[in-house]
Amino acid sequence: MPIYAAYASNMDPAQMLERAPHSPMYSTGWLCGWRLTFAGDDIGWEGSLATVVEDDDPDAKVFVVLYDVPDEDTANLDRWEGTELGVHRKIRARVETVEGPVLAWLYVIDGYEGGLPSARYLGVMADAAEVAGAPADYIERLRLHEARNVGPGPEEPLEDQS
Score class of each variant (00 low, 15 high):
132 A>E: 05
92 R>I: 04
142 L>H: 00
125 M>Q: 13
96 E>L: 09
131 V>N: 02
101 P>L: 01
134 A>F: 04
123 G>I: 01
122 L>H: 08
138 Y>T: 11
138 Y>V: 14
135 P>C: 09
92 R>G: 08
93 A>M: 12
106 L>F: 02
134 A>W: 04
143 R>H: 00
124 V>K: 14
102 V>I: 15
141 R>Q: 12
124 V>L: 14
114 G>N: 05
128 A>V: 02
138 Y>D: 06
93 A>K: 14
116 L>V: 03
100 G>Q: 07
100 G>P: 05
119 A>I: 11
129 A>K: 08
136 A>M: 09
100 G>M: 07
115 G>I: 06
117 P>I: 07
107 Y>N: 04
86 G>W: 10
103 L>R: 13
145 H>V: 01
101 P>M: 06
141 R>G: 00
122 L>D: 06
133 G>D: 06
129 A>Q: 07
146 E>R: 15
99 E>F: 11
119 A>C: 10
109 I>W: 03
139 I>S: 02
108 V>W: 00
122 L>E: 08
146 E>L: 14
139 I>T: 10
102 V>Y: 01
116 L>G: 01
109 I>N: 02
95 V>C: 02
120 R>F: 12
111 G>A: 15
131 V>S: 00
141 R>E: 11
124 V>R: 15
110 D>R: 03
87 V>Y: 14
118 S>P: 00
107 Y>G: 02
120 R>L: 12
142 L>I: 06
128 A>F: 00
124 V>A: 13
103 L>A: 12
125 M>W: 00
138 Y>C: 04
119 A>L: 10
127 D>P: 00
98 V>H: 13
106 L>H: 02
88 H>L: 04
99 E>C: 09
129 A>T: 04
122 L>S: 07
133 G>S: 05
104 A>H: 03
99 E>G: 13
96 E>C: 02
125 M>S: 10
143 R>M: 02
119 A>R: 14
111 G>N: 13
135 P>Q: 13
107 Y>I: 03
134 A>Y: 05
99 E>R: 14
132 A>W: 08
111 G>I: 03
97 T>W: 01
86 G>A: 10
124 V>C: 04
103 L>F: 08
143 R>A: 03
106 L>D: 04
130 E>F: 06
140 E>Y: 05
99 E>Y: 11
123 G>C: 06
90 K>V: 15
146 E>M: 12
139 I>L: 03
112 Y>R: 11
108 V>Q: 10
98 V>M: 12
91 I>T: 15
114 G>C: 07
92 R>A: 12
146 E>D: 14
127 D>T: 12
101 P>I: 04
89 R>V: 11
144 L>A: 13
88 H>G: 03
100 G>N: 05
146 E>H: 12
115 G>F: 06
136 A>R: 13
126 A>L: 05
129 A>L: 07
140 E>N: 10
144 L>P: 01
129 A>I: 07
139 I>K: 01
98 V>Q: 13
131 V>W: 02
112 Y>T: 10
131 V>A: 10
123 G>L: 07
96 E>H: 08
89 R>E: 13
88 H>F: 15
119 A>N: 11
131 V>T: 13
146 E>V: 11
110 D>C: 04
117 P>C: 04
121 Y>T: 03
135 P>T: 09
98 V>W: 10
117 P>F: 08
130 E>A: 15
99 E>L: 13
120 R>K: 11
143 R>E: 06
117 P>L: 08
120 R>H: 13
101 P>W: 04
127 D>M: 07
135 P>S: 12
